[in-house]
Design a protein around this nucleic acid. Sequence first.
RNA 1: GAUUUGCUAGCUCAGUAGGUAGAGCACAUCCCUUUUAAGGAUGGGGUCCUGGGUUCGAAUCCCAGGCAGAUCACCA
Length: 572
Amino acid sequence: MQSLNLSEQEIIRRDALSELVKLGIDPYPAGEFPVNCSTAEILEKFRDDAPDWHVSLAGRIMSRRIMGNASFIELQDEKGRIQVYVKRDNLCPEEDKTLYNTVFKHLLDNGDIIGVTGHIFRTQMGEISVKAMELKVLCKSLRPLPIVKEKDGVVYDAFTDPDQRYRQRYLDLVVNPKIKETFIQRTQLINSFRDFLNSKQYIEVETPVLQPVYGGAAARPFKTYHNTLDQTLYLRIANELYLKRLIVGGFNGVYEFARDFRNEGMDRFHNPEFTQLELYVAYKDYNWMMNLVEEMVEKAVISLHGSTEISVGEMNISFRRPWKRFTMYEAIMESTGIDISGLDENQLFETCRQLDVPVDNTMGKGRLIDQIFGVKCESLLIQPTFITDYPIEMSPLAKKHRSITGLVERFEMICCGKELCNAYSELNDPVDQRERFEEQLILGKRGDEEAMILDEDFLRALEFGMPPTSGLGIGIDRLAMILTNSPSIQDVLFFPQMRPEKKMVRDDDEAFAKMGIPTEWITLIQKLGYLLTDELRKVNPNRLHQELCGMNKKHKLGLVNPSQDEVRKWLA
RNA sequence: GAUUUGCUAGCUCAGUAGGUAGAGCACAUCCCUUUUAAGGAUGGGGUCCUGGGUUCGAAUCCCAGGCAGAUCACCA
């Protein structure tokens, strides 16, 4: 019944599964299989002159070379692959050769998970291998794996379709083992940051993901609803305002690896959910924070790569301290030759036009400057570079610059043409903060969908007093992209957001039976693509009759064809 | 959202100025056996993304849609 929907190879595997059961072999055993080493450990530690080394290991069969009574398989575990030599008389020393002849040769496939015990030796071809003395089925795989082969560093038939790789990451990880490296490095990066911050006695905290008022960044949120409270809640776009509340509460340093959610476009630099490290430290300013970022990132790069120099695509990036520092005005001066520091809004508008920088009428002074920077400077900054001192209009949470009016004490770190982090001397003047929020409200009314919302509770906290504080946000995904040389954010997220897979809507067999269609024809009708009875009724009966008879003939099903009249009655 | 490329067997891909759908790997049966992207023989396997249109005839040409990639715009 189901078999028409399965591929030939899937049917063969299901048949093998029931054969195993018939032989009294549980294809999904419950018990522990004791493993005492990994493939990598064997390859690393084996010595030809060492005494017999008995191993017990488990993994997935990735290839099989079967030759009569001796065979070779490649077994893959978490750490890599090793060849296993399977000889009939080793596996079956007694009369009964079923385990080798039937189970191993016919009922096991690529992709099955087995446990093997035996000892290590080197073959005539010089390959370190496991001589299997026992073999146990641990899991029968019902779908064929894409087979990726490799010789001399050349990969054949690589599994590359990005759609399948991202949707079925499990499969990607099985057949493209290098993918695993990327994710391990991502975790190493996070661990390195965490170790660094813990060593400074900062406290890792958790703050709400569901927030009644979203804030801390300029972005559109995801909206949800809490039944019991009868209240709209938002998935956080940032956790900044909560971490600052904790500084108010008396913590000197708090940080969180925060999953944030922004309801905006998706491309190779943006996923709707992404991870930021946010850090707030009391009694510090943004200059201090720049030094911390340099040190922390440099350290992480060294811990991943053993060096401060790495290659990203065609580029060579050096994270060696100190990094270049420019004010935003200097950066614009450098790339365009124009000093914008004294210009008013109209003059900036005119400058944008001269520079071919796209603008629109809603843009205020700050947006115009930011736009010039974004178009003319950002993409040119390849080596890690700090850009400091941003226009106040763009930075409602940052403290006013200590000496230059119209600017705030803010920096971003740009690398490979992309912003990697954002930090301020945090605004702790509650009166100023309220005014800034109110300016944002006006922008919001002008149509800026990303304008910030006024958070009364946050202002109340500030009114109790927050010490001077420096705060930082680092995009973990983007940094991971650079450190793992990944061209897309999807490559550093296990399960990137994808459009839903097309789902077939279908009626069950009973619905077809109700039309008076005999069981044996129902599967055929479904196989022909008629999955809904309503659709089926619209079909020309003569056409359906022809298709069914054709199918019967083609697949040599040996069914007695229905008459045209009978088919017409089904559809009536 | 715009532009563009792609979608054919489990995987990687060919394909014909429109005429019954191909290869390699994988799979099945068999041969050989310390082999290694094993080799040899034979065989099975397809809604050529979906739906319309043009046509005697469409995987191929046209239109619409789906999904994915790339580039651009907004954003981290």
